[in-house]
Design a protein around this nucleic acid. Structure first.
Length: 220
DNA sequence: ATGACGATTTACT
DNA sequence: GTAAATCGTCATA
């Protein structure tokens, strides 16, 4: 499956984490596709294959968790056949379950200020922190793991319609030459749970009402 | 052995 | 808005 397809397809699904006797869950509201060896922004650009990014070359459904900036972890879902380094970075979640544990995990490192719920998982490193994900989960098989997996939301949760998914360029890849502007980031329109600024968009119909609810909860 | 660099976040002016 | 934090990894020598 192409990383673009998966990045779009993961929006709205649940990322579930079982850790320390706690069950944590969040709805995926932001992803980025990394398109393989030809993608200048990818850790696998030019076929680069090292100890660090080895999991990118594993079979689809593998977790690729990497450490960066000397202090942060980010998690990807690998989607290429074995030997083909396609991956999708999970960039933000709408926290659904285990918020208190997420708060504790996020509070652990910081000095002072409190954390708003909408920022518990509003970034690739934040969500890893909130869900207790680090290099120990690198290489996990998400299809069979009891630690981390991806699930369909139940019927009680309002669906995110395709038209509410907006594409933008990816974040933090200024070095990537002509790949800088490709719209490989997928975000839920008007969701306050995404990284950076909310992405406003008119989406019409039922989704418009959902958007208003989002807008209201994010207003202060 | 060394040095430059992050698929980021936080705190501060 | 800008800058500091912080260190594993990898290319170069």
């Amino acid at each position: 499956m192409s990383s673009e397809q998966l990045a779009k397809g993961l929006i709205g699904r649940l990322l579930i984490r079982h850790v320390g006797g706690h069950l944590l869950a969040g709805r995926i509201v932001e992803t980025e596709a990394y398109a393989g060896m030809k993608d200048r922004a990818s850790h696998a650009f030019g076929g680069r294959r090292t100890a660090r990014n080895e999991a990118m070359y594993a079979r689809e459904g593998t977790a690729y968790v990497y450490f960066t900036y000397g202090m942060h972890h980010c998690m990807n879902v690998v989607c290429g056949e074995e030997g083909v380094p396609l991956a999708v970075l999970i960039r933000a979640l709408e926290p659904m379950e285990g918020l208190e544990t997420m708060r504790e995990l996020r509070r652990a490192k910081r000095r002072t200020s409190e954390i708003e719920d909408r920022h518990l998982c509003s970034g690739p490193a934040r969500l890893c922190q909130a869900m207790g994900i680090d290099r120990r989960q690198n290489g996990l098989d998400l299809v069979s793991s009891e630690e981390i997996w991806i699930a369909e939301p139940g019927p009680q949760l309002e669906r995110i319609p395709t038209r509410a998914i907006v594409r933008t360029p990816r974040i933090g890849i200024a070095y990537a030459g002509d790949w800088v502007h490709k719209p490989l980031r997928f975000v839920v329109a008007n969701s306050p749970y995404v990284s950076g600024r909310r992405v406003d968009a008119e989406v019409g119909g039922r989704a418009a009402r959902v958007s208003k609810v989002f807008a209201r909860t994010s207003r202060k």
